[in-house]
Write a protein that binds this DNA or RNA. Structure first.
Length: 265
DNA sequence: CCATTGACCTGAGCGC
DNA sequence: TGCGCTCAGGTCAATG
C-alpha cells in the first residue's frame, strides 16, 4: 500500500495517539506476522518513547531501548482503537495498558512486525539509500549511483538502496514532471536530467506529504482519514496527461508504468 | 556486480 | 452466477 508520504502520514498520526503508552503485550493472530529478535518478550510493560520513519519502515522506540520495526508492504494498515474490532485481516494487536490497542491489519500478509534489541535493527534498514528530501540526495550522489547502471531509470528509482521511500506511484509522477522517459537507461541521463530527477522527486514527495499521501484504493491514516494527493496525480492510472496526450501503460520489472511519450523523452 | 523474473498472498474487477 | 484471467501502493531470492 504505502510509499514514503503515506508511511510518514501514519507515523505522524501514531505519534499523537501512542507515544507515552505502555504496551502490555503484542498478540499475534496469524503465524509469521511478529518476529522476535530479542531473548524474551521484551516489549511487555514498556513505554513507547518515540516513533520514527526510515524509508518505508516504521520504528517504535521503547523505554527499554528495544525497537519495534513495522513494514506495511502492500496492504498493511495500523488502526488505533479503543474497543475490540477484530477483522478477518487482523494479523496482530499491540495492546496498551489503558485497554486501547493498535490493530495491524494486512489482507495480503506481506507486512511484518519485528522486535529488535538495543544496537540491532532490521538488516534491510541498513541497506537503505538516502532519504529523498535529505541534502544527501543530490545531483552528484545520483550521478555517481547511476554511472554503471544500464537498467531503465524507472526501475532504478524503485530501488530502496538507491533512494529510500519511493514507490510505483511517485516514481511515475516524478518522471512525468521531470519530462524523462521511464525507459531511459540510468547511465545515459544528462546533467540536466539528473538535476530534474532530484528537483521533482523532492517536489512530488513534499507535495504528497502536505496532502497526507495518496489514497488510490484504501490507504487510511491511523484515524481512518484518507489522503488527498490522488487529486493531483498527472499520469498514474490516468488515461490522458494534463496536456491531453494519451497516457501509455507498460510493464517494467513486473510493475505498471504510466507515462506520456510526448511529454517524456 | 548487474539485470530480470518469479514468489510471497488475498481480493477486486472484468470479459465471457 | 461463476469461472478464469489480470491487476494491486513492495521486497527478496534465485538465476543468467
Amino acid at each position: 500500500m504505502p510509499e514514503l508520504p503515506e508511511v510518514d502520514t501514519i507515523v505522524r498520526g501514531l505519534r499523537d495517539y501512542v507515544i507515552g503508552k505502555s504496551i502490555s503485550h503484542i498478540e499475534e493472530l496469524r503465524d509469521n506476522t511478529v518476529e522476535v529478535h530479542t531473548p524474551d518478550d521484551s516489549c511487555n510493560n514498556c513505554t513507547i518513547t518515540d516513533i520514527k520513519r526510515r524509508g518505508k519502515y516504521i520504528i517504535f522506540e521503547l523505554s527499554n531501548e528495544n525497537t519495534i520495526v513495522i513494514h506495511l508492504r502492500m496492504t498493511g494498515k495500523l488502526v488505533y482503537v479503543s474497543d475490540e474490532r477484530i477483522t478477518p485481516y487482523t494479523r496482530a494487536i499491540i495492546r496498551f495498558s489503558d485497554k486501547t490497542s493498535l490493530q495491524f491489519e494486512d489482507i495480503r500478509t506481506f507486512g511484518s512486525i519485528k522486535i529488535f534489541p538495543k544496537d540491532m535493527t532490521d538488516p534491510s534498514i541498513l541497506k537503505l539509500g538516502p532519504e529523498p528530501l535529505s541534502s544527501e540526495f543530490n545531483e552528484s550522489y545520483l550521478k555517481d549511483s547511476l554511472k554503471k547502471l544500464k537498467a531503465p531509470i524507472k526501475n532504478i528509482l524503485l530501488r530502496q538502496d538507491i533512494v529510500a521511500g519511493l514507490g510505483n506511484i511517485y516514481v511515475c509522477e516524478l518522471l512525468y514532471r521531470a519530462k524523462i522517459s521511464p525507459l531511459k537507461a540510468g547511465n545515459t541521463l544528462t546533467n540536466s536530467e539528473l538535476k530534474r530527477v532530484i528537483e521533482y522527486t523532492k517536489e512530488v514527495i513534499s507535495e504528497a506529504l502536505l496532502h497526507n499521501g495518496t489514497s488510490v484504493s484504501d490507504f487510511r491514516n491511523v484515524d481512518d482519514k484518507p489522503g488527498s494527493f490522488q487529486n493531483f496525480l498527472r499520469v498514474y492510472q490516468k488515461k490522458v496527461c494534463p496536456l491531453g496526450h494519451k497516457v501509455q501503460r507498460i510493464k517494467q520489472a513486473g510493475r505498471s508504468t504510466f507515462y506520456c511519450d510526448k511529454c517524456q523523452k
